[in-house]
Write a protein that binds this DNA or RNA. Structure first.
Lengths: 195, 195
DNA sequence: CTGATATCTGAACGCACGTTCATATTAAAG
DNA sequence: CTTTAATATGAACGTGCGTTCAGATATCAG
């Protein structure tokens, strides 16, 4: 864990983000000290400030990076297909992406309160953009008659919450494989819109 | 807000819990100091220790009280009826109870990490008991053939997450009344089990 | 009014925090 | 080998934390 001074500057930055992500996810932003993060990286606390202006920015960049990666990854998936197919693609994408990044998901959903108001506004905007993607699919299905649902906005929020809830109980070594879980949630999502 | 010393002991305890609940829900357990709680009550920090042994116990009692009240309130509702009716009753109960206690719900779902391991075990046990109530309804419906679903356990978790997610966007002065929200979620829940 | 008891204050405790900075060490270039 | 710039140390800073407690104040029974 200990490293020699002056070396490996090109990997210290990412190592700090990785350590902070792991510790923030495990214990919460407020409960993790800069000294703990530094110890995880194998460095003294002062050295962290070569790579980040302060602790708040560290949290913010972690969350922003996660959400921007998420949006970019979703943007890479072709939009073609009927609403029912796009809904299935969204559910599979969301679960596949999130099951592989439990720490980042935890952070993005649990640490919003610890952002400064300006940073919160940025993160909240990114989150809304992602939720709007699902809402658009539901609206498209409603408009072409392939979906029937009580309220597109509420149904979208209910579906997002249902999907996000997976991270509460999912364990890589648990009873169900990711693919099996994806199939179950695709069925549940389809039923919610009667597709 | 300031109160005379020596008076009103019989209301100070509840007032402290109320203040702590409000502040913990707003800013998070770690971000709220005992001095802030005391100021909200109109008292000096030292006086809090007449009513609670420490800050951790304050959080724990808040969460335990909420979950025990929740379980007691659900136990008061008659068990009679077909699984589909019991499912509707559960959804309506859950939303009705939670929409009126946004702070307690927030606490119970967000502050688990700030409990000591022993306290966490107690709270987690209560939470599982509540979730098991829904799971039992789903299993009963599966056994009598009135529900069809991919996996009772996963469906129960998905449904709980969907219901719990309401607190993220619900506002008392928003577009939808509690009754309208309840009806929407009853429909969504029914669809998830094809009832 | 007199004590006894419950309640609260306000100062203090030791500690851990985020952050800074003078100094030391290292790597890389000439 | 020498110089320079990048990188890291480790001590120190001011602050605010949870908690304690001696002393002040209020209530109330007799």
């Amino acid at each position: 864990m200990a490293r020699k001074a002056g070396s490996h500057a090109e990997i210290t930055g990412p190592a700090i983000r990785e350590a902070a992500l792991k510790l923030f996810a495990r214990s919460g932003y407020a409960a993790v000290s800069m000294r703990e993060i530094a110890a995880e990286v194998g460095v003294q606390a002062g050295a962290l400030y070569l790579y980040t202006p302060d602790k708040q920015t560290l949290l913010f960049e972690l969350m922003r990076g996660h959400l921007e990666d998420l949006l970019a990854a979703w943007a890479d998936i072709p939009e073609a297909g009927a609403p029912a197919d796009r809904l299935e693609a969204f559910v599979r994408f969301h679960l596949g992406y999130h099951l592989n990044r439990p720490d980042a998901v935890f952070l993005a959903y649990m640490e919003l309160r610890n952002l400064t108001p300006e940073n919160f506004a940025v993160i909240e905007g990114l989150r809304r953009r992602y939720e709007a993607e699902l809402e658009q699919i539901l609206i498209a299905g409603h408009e072409d008659g392939s979906f029937r649902m009580p309220d597109a906005r509420v149904t979208a929020m209910a579906m997002i919450a249902m999907l996000a809830g997976v991270h509460v109980w999912y364990r890589p070594d648990g009873r169900l494989t990711p693919d099996r879980i994806e199939r179950i949630y695709v069925r549940l999502a389809r039923r919610m819109v009667k597709a």
